[in-house]
Design a protein around this nucleic acid. Structure first.
Length: 406
RNA sequence: GGCGGCGUAGCUCAGUGGUAGAGCAGGGGAAUCAUAAUCCCUUGGUCGGCGGUUCAAAUCCGUCCGCCGCUACCA
């Protein structure tokens, strides 16, 4: 039987434009997908967008458009980014699609049937002005004894009805999973942090909200929408046609690899397997967290204005050069810095000088000594024919040297 | 505060008990099938400090200094 391989990127949250970090995770997943296809495996490669939640609702409001119109626009931009980076996804799922709403609600019902969800109250210090909850340790006390948020807004103790997931009941089973399947979570640093987090003890997780509407309704209680992480994580199943586990795609489950950014490792390595265990569904084989990129030594941020759109890099340096650099520059799992100098050096030395020079030497030898012909079998095995074809048709496709600009 | 990681050549880092390594940068040279390319040689380090275990420590233990991460419902 042909080996199946199911690999996913995170679904990207649509409250901002795609940047180099999104492209990086997607490229890494793409390379895995392409590798397994070359190995003859039956690959399913999923990417998509996460489109619910209060932040999106607010962003849409700020932009003066309906949430659906807002997410349509941003999701299209993420899809364009994936296409521009030659991400060979088999499906692009959006959490606002009916198939996902069906899948997420079915997962909820499965978990609820197994008695892992109960109705309680989410309570905490809430600042009406900021529309946000704060932790006890973040608060300060004003001169009149009024508790204040870090922003200076007055807070009050409020209770909001909420459904809770019995996360605390899964602590031992999670630790057992990490212990028995050391490959489940990588790299080592992320694994250690997650294990120590779970060992500290898990509290039940609030998984519904009544304070906003932009989300998937909780089955049987329309006053609530699902907490975005319950909604979002379900995408890996709903894209396979869940809850229909007899469909063609269902055979890809359990996923072989969820590739994620290190900021969301915990949601994938703790909440996700717990939800699945509660639903009686197999857990994925592996979660791997990649690191972050700084830009010219600085953290990427909107306020600094150094957020890089990967498509801009591609326009300047070419697609393969950018893809090569991102994967070559850093030991996978670690953080790294994206600088013009490093990008230019990698491309000049390794692609243009080393590889380009080797190909150039080979071709000129062939031209001089072999009547410019390569035997068909040989050329197919070495894939030289496509090289020489591209060379004749379009020399600009060859690696180019770049002059370093300070 | 607690837990964890890191500190090795000018720079980025590999190396987890047995004569200190790579790439880039610097210096010198060669050859031609080859681009401002390539190839060879070479300079350069008290392996953060101190103490301990050992025949032997970058590597194990203790301690100190410095940097970083995690410490839940903000995706």
């Amino acid at each position: 039987m042909t080996r199946r391989f199911y690999v996913t990127t995170p679904i990207y949250y649509v409250n901002g434009a795609p940047h180099i970090g999104h492209a990086y995770t997607s490229i890494a997943a793409d390379v895995m997908a392409r590798f397994h296809r070359l190995a003859g495996h039956d690959v399913f490669f999923l990417t998509g967008t996460d489109e619910h939640g209060q932040k999106v609702e607010q962003a849409a409001q700020a932009a003066g458009v309906e949430p659906q119109a807002f997410v349509d626009r941003i999701a299209a931009d993420f899809r364009d980014m994936a296409d521009s980076m030659a991400i060979s996804y088999d499906d692009f799922i959006r959490t606002t699609e009916p198939r996902h709403v069906t899948g997420a609600q079915a997962l909820w019902e499965r978990v609820a049937q197994n008695d892992a969800i109960y109705l309680g109250a989410y309570e905490g210090w809430y600042a009406l002005r900021d529309e946000c909850f704060y932790g006890e340790d973040e608060l300060t006390t004003g001169p009149d004894g009024q508790k204040l948020a870090p922003t200076g807004a007055p807070v009050e103790w409020v209770k909001e009805p909420s459904y809770f997931f019995r996360l605390s009941a899964f602590q031992d089973r999670l630790l057992e999973l990490y212990e028995q399947c050391p490959e489940f979570l990588g790299p080592h640093g992320a694994r250690n942090e997650i294990i120590s987090f779970v060992r500290q003890g898990l509290r039940d997780l609030s998984i519904s909200r009544t304070s906003f509407k932009w989300g998937i309704p909780v089955p049987g209680d329309e006053a609530h929408v699902m907490y975005v992480w319950f909604d979002a994580l379900a995408n890996y199943l709903s894209a396979l046609g869940f809850p229909d586990m007899d469909g063609a795609r269902a055979a890809y489950w359990p996923a072989d690899l969820h590739l994620v950014g290190k900021d969301i490792a915990r949601f994938h390595a703790v909440y996700w397997p717990a939800f699945l265990m509660a639903a009686g569904i197999d857990v994925p084989s592996r979660i791997f967290a990649n690191g972050w990129w700084t830009v010219e030594g600085q953290k990427m941020s909107k306020s600094i204005g150094n957020v890089i759109d990967p498509r801009d890099l591609v326009r300047e340096f070419g697609l393969d050069a950018v893809r090569f650099f991102l994967l070559r520059e850093v030991p996978f799992g670690g953080d790294s810095d994206l600088s013009r100098k490093a990008l230019i050096t990698r491309n000049n030395v390794e692609l243009a000088n080393d590889l380009g020079n080797l190909a150039q030497r080979t071709l000129s030898l062939v031209a001089k000594n072999c009547e410019a012909m390569i035997l068909r079998g040989v050329s197919q095995r070495l894939r030289i024919s496509s090289f020489s074809h591209r060379w004749r048709c379009c020399p600009s496709l060859w690696p180019r040297n770049w002059n370093a600009v300070p």
